[in-house]
């Protein structure tokens, strides 16, 4: 499957060298050093992300074309929306080929020299110290996690639901700020239930990828989250609702109770 799809991607991206960095159920993500329309100098090290949504053979071709196009556009629109909320860091949109399911965007993050040059996703960033209790729970970590929580809070205040909050989808920038990526499952919603579930997904993700320190990490994340709502009275009421729902979801373990 993979090779066929990579070839298909390449056919829509002629002369662009592609390097696969991940292959999910939805999309394949590549990096390239070639900018789509700016002259690239030979010794440039800047990389760009290309996200490709391949066609799905099981779908009716009309449905498939529509879904691919709409989802690609929706993701690009979300990136645009985030551009207009300067307090939230996100990758910038570079180019869009919605018909073929392709988005080009900025690559955020840096290579962790103390961790095999892996990308500075929150996951990797935390995993550096997984075997060292002292280093895993420092002030530096606390501050970073609070910043992450704060960013998610700000997203929710703006009714942006990420939809897939895992520690792989949060990047720590070189300036040690938090940046959200991968908005493939994101959508707009004011419902406290949706925000609660967004938080629950992150809670579970932290628990499964960083079990040793999950409790403390989630505590710091939530502290930052609350800060993200600011001091405005209306926002604080919204926050209360969300936190209430979040607790309910945690107890229930799932979004809704079953239908008979």
């Amino acid at each position: 499957m993979s090779d066929e799809l990579i070839q298909l991607a390449q056919s829509h991206l002629q002369n662009i060298p592609l390097q696969v960095i991940s292959q999910g159920a939805e999309a394949i993500v590549f990096t390239t050093k070639t900018h789509p329309y700016l002259p690239t100098s030979k010794d440039s090290h800047t990389e760009y992300i290309i996200k490709y949504r391949p066609p799905k053979k099981y779908r009716h071709p009309q449905l498939d074309a529509t879904l691919t196009k709409h989802r690609t556009i929706a993701e690009a629109r979300l990136l645009q929306r985030l551009t207009n909320i300067p307090e939230i860091q996100s990758p910038g949109l570079i180019a869009l080929d919605a018909r073929n399911g392709i988005i080009w965007m900025e690559k955020v993050g840096y290579e962790l020299i103390d961790y095999d040059d892996k990308i500075s996703s929150l996951k990797n960033w935390l995993w550096r110290y997984n075997d060292n209790q002292e280093k895993a729970l420092t002030e530096e970590i606390k501050i970073a996690l609070e910043k992450v929580g704060c960013m998610i809070g700000k997203a929710h205040v703006n009714d942006v639901i990420h939809g897939d909050l895992t520690s792989s989808n949060i990047i720590i920038t070189e300036a040690q700020e938090a940046c959200l990526i991968d908005f493939g499952l994101s959508y707009q919603s004011a419902l406290p239930e949706d925000k609660g579930v967004d938080l629950y997904v992150l809670d579970r993700a932290i628990l499964s990828t960083h079990p040793k320190y999950a409790e403390q990490y989630n505590e710091w994340l939530m502290a930052g989250y609350e800060r993200g709502y600011g001091k405005d009275k209306k926002s604080l009421i919204k926050l209360k609702e969300v936190l209430k729902r979040y607790e309910e979801v945690r107890l229930r373990g799932r979004k809704r109770s079953m239908l008979g």
Partner: peptide
Amino acid sequence: QETLFAMLVEITERAMAH
């Protein structure tokens, strides 16, 4: 059918990957 079943297959694929 085409629409409903596509929805089911999509979620199943996501679960498989997850």
